[in-house]
Amino acid sequence: MDYFAGLLINGILVGAVYSMVALGFVLIYKASRVLNFAQGELLMIGAYFCLELVVRLEVGILSAFILTLVLMSVMAVLIERLILRKMMNAPVISVVMVTIGLGIMLRSVVLLFWGPITIHFPEFIADVPFDLGFVRVSVIYIYGFLICIAFMVIFGLFFRYTRTGLVMRGAASSQMAARSVGVPLHMVFALAWVVAAIVSAAGGVITGNIAGLTPELSAYGVRVFPAVILGGLDSIVGTTIAGVLIGVMEELGGGYLRDWTGLSGLGPVVPFFVLIIVLWIRPHGLMGTKEIERL
């Protein structure tokens, strides 16, 4: 029972990061119908920015975190302006490949400046286990979880109650209509990239603090795909729930299926089986729009 509870709690905590990163992915998809394969690389580079600020420039962690988000926003605007705007009318394959190319470039930058080694953040919070009553969890996980929740609530409120949020929702629901009432679509796309970069960087800093920094962090971008499909490609709420579900599945899959099947490394693969099954039987996911054409 404790084993189960431990895996479950871990899954939820890891899943919260997935949810947050998936939020960025879905946002870009909704705004501009672009599948962003560089999402994981944004997460990775954000974490390294923060590390650089903290270690090399000796900025306090909180200001470093905020500075990172600012830097990432600038980078997101540049990416949108210099690359994706030129791909506005390009076919799907080109847009996907351009984000992959971008991801390769970002990864090479990290390898060039930091190398393929694991670097650890200096410890900010004493890593004491936190007793939840039935299971003990590392306190960093708890902080990470709370930060994820905070970010998602902030962006939820932003989309719900601000004018800009309304404009973005409008553009997502119909680009044509939004444009005809004077919505500057470029601004919307850029903003979507900014938000995606911010949530990714936040996710990167959190996971970096937990497990250390390696270029492998970019794999998070990949792990988000099952969450995105399970939740529904264009549903933010669905993806948030699915992110947690996928996190739990990964942990339980890694924990139990190994004992049952004798196969190792199953944890990270289980969500992709789920992805395939979801696409077979319910391609719009838990809460996505049912835009299935009989093609």
Partner: peptide
């Protein structure tokens, strides 16, 4: 890494 960077850059520029 330099090779990787040039590779990524080539992809983006070509597209």
């Amino acid at each position: 890494p330099i090779r990787m960077f040039i590779y990524g850059l080539l992809v983006v520029i070509f597209l």
